[in-house]
Design a protein around this nucleic acid. Structure first.
Length: 574
DNA sequence: GCCGTTTTCGGCCCGACTGTTTTCAGTCG
């Protein structure tokens, strides 16, 4: 978690500099560095160990000064500039500018005029009505700050993509009822298929924006209106998620969708590119002087800028513009490329449905095969199977295969990787399987070198095909275990082990940056739902979008193959 | 503070909404 610790320090330096009204470009530089560090696939101390300061300076947004501060943190666990800045303000003061609607200017004014130094001070001052005596702080502003504090206290961070997806669907279904709306689409982080979602962005095409805004802000799910204007409204929904609606005209659709999809860094880079070409981009279109030259569709916009179409999942503000300029954006994998699902559980361990029901459901999805991969014996909580039980289950699979046409059920197991790196089943059992997934399910807290060795040892087993949920994280619940991902991936490449992209919305493991790194090493993937019930087989879409964010093509994924080619791949390690 | 296929100095994305200061600053995305 070291990268995030350093990023947090740079975010705070930026905030502190904002309070001091420092040069805004300097502030921007710290924010930019923080953002880039958060998205790094490698640990900063590993980069530093291998390549020193020079390696740090090669990172985007990191120059002389910030590289030294990273070095300082690695050596001393703190950064002097950060400590000095913190000393200039009372403890707990930074919390104030993180209240929605409050920025550095407001916070500083309250600090200077009313000696408000913390969240507690602020709440007390509001209760006593002190704010009202201040110029520029009338009734409404005070009310907004109060609501901002409440929201801040209740909010539990970002939402799972599956939850946001469902909510967005109910909103758009209702909006679609309004006849004034010509076209309607979800944009923002949900369209980019980020692993978690902060708010829901909806773009509407209509000639009558006022009617749309009235309807939107009165929806049953709306708890509070943050802003309501001619073209843009923001609301807080009942579950405390924010939703933004933007209304534009038909000939602005492409540029508006692009602008509203982001991310922010990507948009900035697009605008910078436009400037270099003597053009200007905004949500209203691409302009040469005052003449509009593109904007009706996203495709038109990219083409006018001399770029390949960049799919939303790749719009990260990293190297996608350069690659699009060289016309090298690949055709990314699609949901319909998936021919089967190679991790799921049945009643034989902790699943809800019998094998046959899983198979029938998969057949309805159009799959050619599935693998039943129930847990091994040491997973007591998950009713892991003994050797006898799994062999019995395989006989049941033979019978099902004889009955069902058009879908093959593979005999599999999700075998536990024990703390010493040995597996929970002996090779005699594993060799009876068509597919073997290995996974860590216990003793998560291990020093990095031990955990890395443990996993690598498991992958060296000739029967292990796939490393399941390779980093073990549970989004919003559990950190990944401490494993050196780069070494782990190198071992996967050496042993011919496939990496899982686990499609469960809480896992999404590997994540995008690690997927990209693994692909560069030539590793192949299996995108699996890890289903414990029939309906969860539908989660495949979340795995596919995570794969797309990692630049994955159909050829990189083994469960896009036909059954014969897949079997060949699965047996080539033995 | 970062960055460079016109630059090692002089730039650094663009626009909406709110509240209140009657002309705009602050905040947000």
């Amino acid at each position: 978690m070291q990268n995030n610790e350093i990023a947090k320090i740079f975010w705070e330096i930026a905030e502190l500099l904002e309070l001091k009204e420092e040069n805004r470009f300097k502030i921007h530089a710290y924010q930019n560095a923080a953002r880039n560090i958060e998205n790094l696939p490698h640990h900063l101390d590993e980069i530093y160990k291998k390549q020193g300061l020079k390696g740090l300076k090669e990172l985007e947004g990191v120059g002389e000064s910030i590289a030294h501060k990273i070095e300082e943190y690695i050596k001393h666990k703190k950064v002097k500039k950060h400590q000095d800045l913190l000393k200039e303000f009372p403890k707990g003061f930074l919390a104030l500018i993180n209240i929605p609607g409050m920025g550095p200017k407001t916070a500083m004014k309250l600090h200077k005029e009313l000696k408000i130094n913390s969240m507690d001070d602020l709440e007390r001052a509001i209760k006593k009505g002190f704010l009202k005596d201040l110029p520029g702080f009338k009734e409404k502003k005070q009310e907004n700050i109060k609501k901002g504090i409440e929201l801040k206290k209740r909010s539990h961070g970002r939402f799972l993509i599956s939850d946001a997806d469902e909510l967005a669907q109910t909103l758009t279904l209702q909006l679609a009822n309004l006849k004034e709306i010509k076209k309607l689409t979800v944009a923002g982080s949900l369209r980019r298929r980020e692993e978690t979602i902060g708010d829901i962005d909806i773009l509407v095409i209509s000639e009558r924006p006022k009617a749309v805004m009235d309807y939107f802000t009165k929806l049953a799910q709306v708890k509070r209106i943050l802003a309501k204007g001619e073209t843009k409204s923001s609301v807080i929904l009942n579950n405390d998620m924010q939703a933004d609606l933007r209304v534009l005209k038909p000939d602005e659709f492409g540029s508006a969708l692009h602008y509203f999809t982001g991310n922010k860094q990507h948009n900035i880079k697009i605008r910078e590119l436009a400037i270099k070409k003597g053009l200007k981009v905004s949500e209203y279109g691409l302009f040469k002087k005052d003449k509009k030259i593109a904007g009706r569709t996203e495709e038109e916009l990219f083409e006018a800028l001399g770029l390949n179409y960049i799919p939303p999942e790749l719009r990260a503000g990293e190297d996608e513009l350069e690659i699009a300029k060289d016309k090298k954006i690949p055709r990314l994998i699609e949901l319909f490329d998936i021919k089967g699902d190679l991790q799921m559980h049945s009643k034989h361990s902790d699943g809800k449905n019998p094998i046959e029901e899983m198979a029938e459901y998969a057949k309805k999805l159009g799959y050619l095969y599935i693998a039943i991969t129930d847990h091994s014996k040491s997973q007591r909580i998950a009713h892991g199977q003994t050797e006898r039980e799994i062999l019995k289950a395989f006989k049941e699979i033979d019978k099902i295969n004889a009955r069902i046409k058009g879908l093959k059920v593979l005999k599999g197991v999700e075998v536990d990787i024990l703390p010493d790196g040995y597996l929970d089943f002996k090779d005699e059992i594993l060799k009876e399987c068509d597919v073997v997934l290995a996974a860590v399910h216990s003793v998560f807290k291990m020093p990095q070198d031990k955990m890395t060795k443990r996993i690598i040892k498991a992958m060296q087993n000739r029967y292990v095909n796939i490393l399941a949920h390779p980093t073990g994280r549970l989004i919003n619940e559990r950190e990944p275990y401490n494993v050196n991902v780069e070494e782990m991936l190198k071992a996967a490449a050496d042993t011919g082990t496939f990496m899982e992209i686990n499609a469960h919305p809480k896992r999404l493991d590997l994540k995008d940056t690690h997927i990209k790194m693994a692909k560069e090493m030539g590793i192949l993937f299996a995108i699996n739902t890890d289903s414990h019930a029939t309906f969860s087989l539908e989660n495949m879409k979340f795995g596919v979008s995570m794969a797309r964010r990692g630049w994955i093509e159909k050829k990189d994924v083994i469960n896009t193959l036909t059954i014969n080619k897949l079997m060949k791949k699965l047996y080539q390690k033995r």
